[in-house]
Design a protein around this nucleic acid. Sequence first.
DNA 1: TGGCCAACCGAACGAAATTCGGCCGCTCAG
DNA 2: CTGAGCGGCCGAATTTCGTTCGGTTGGCCA
Lengths: 153, 153
Amino acid sequence: MDELDTALLRILQNDARRTNRDMAAELGIAPSTCLERIRGLRERGVISGYHAAVDLHAIDRSTQAIISIKLRPQAMAVATAFQDYVQSLPQTLEMFMVSGASDFLAHVAVKDTQALRDLVLQLAKRQEIGDIRSSVVFEHHRRTTVMPLPPPR
Amino acid sequence: MDELDTALLRILQNDARRTNRDMAAELGIAPSTCLERIRGLRERGVISGYHAAVDLHAIDRSTQAIISIKLRPQAMAVATAFQDYVQSLPQTLEMFMVSGASDFLAHVAVKDTQALRDLVLQLAKRQEIGDIRSSVVFEHHRRTTVMPLPPPR
DNA sequence: TGGCCAACCGAACGAAATTCGGCCGCTCAG
DNA sequence: CTGAGCGGCCGAATTTCGTTCGGTTGGCCA
């Protein structure tokens, strides 16, 4: 995990389709070396995959929300089943199981607020839910480049 | 945005490095046709980019949290500046500006709970903050495949 | 019914990925 | 101090792939 590896991480997180030759040239190393390094990053699990990013507006899913869910204490035993259910919903982008006031946060994307209403009503049917509240997402920004953190001084 | 486009979306979200020939073979079309379709998806903005996914454990950032922040009403005017600040922190993975009890949710990843403590204390120094509370993320699952939603029946 | 247009195909060409043998420099043991 | 071993890097050769482009087809509208 040296300087070269982090540079490759940075490049590939920005554009996973950069050619090997191109990256090698930018970093001043041989293409074969570059390939070897990237293979190492994959084998060590540092790079877990390569994914195309889809624009939610382009597929008519411009409305996003965070749905906070608290289970009934007696239903916490079935938390995993509940989690699987929410994750299986096509509207769900990501799901957090968290400490604090809520047990789960579901980040969802739907067509419009009407569809959001329908989704919340559908979720609220689940018996294991003790409390549910939704927040509309006005803005969402995801960092494309995730890097190792330097040790704090 | 027909059947072929969605199939390509599915494939490329799962593995952005699949070869063009490979995808064409799987879908039973010519490589040139496949290339043309993918170019169309990019030009229409449906595919916004290709990104390598980095494993947070592998880079020693196994501790995640959601930090909920409410600004002081008088400070809402500087919400954008505050947002830019939080997003600029290397610990921040994504940031939501939301309706409801909080104004912002920051999804962060750090080395351990000690580093999380430091981060919260650092954030709490900001004068525009009226309330801040953090939740540890026990589990996080992101969907790799985002698809257009069928119209509800 | 005839013409037009968009989309698909397949071959050809240039470029890239991948392999592999050899070389260099570092490390560690003698 | 020195020599052997080893990990990592390089560069050429081979194979595979991306990309272009001219031709063709099928559907749609006048």
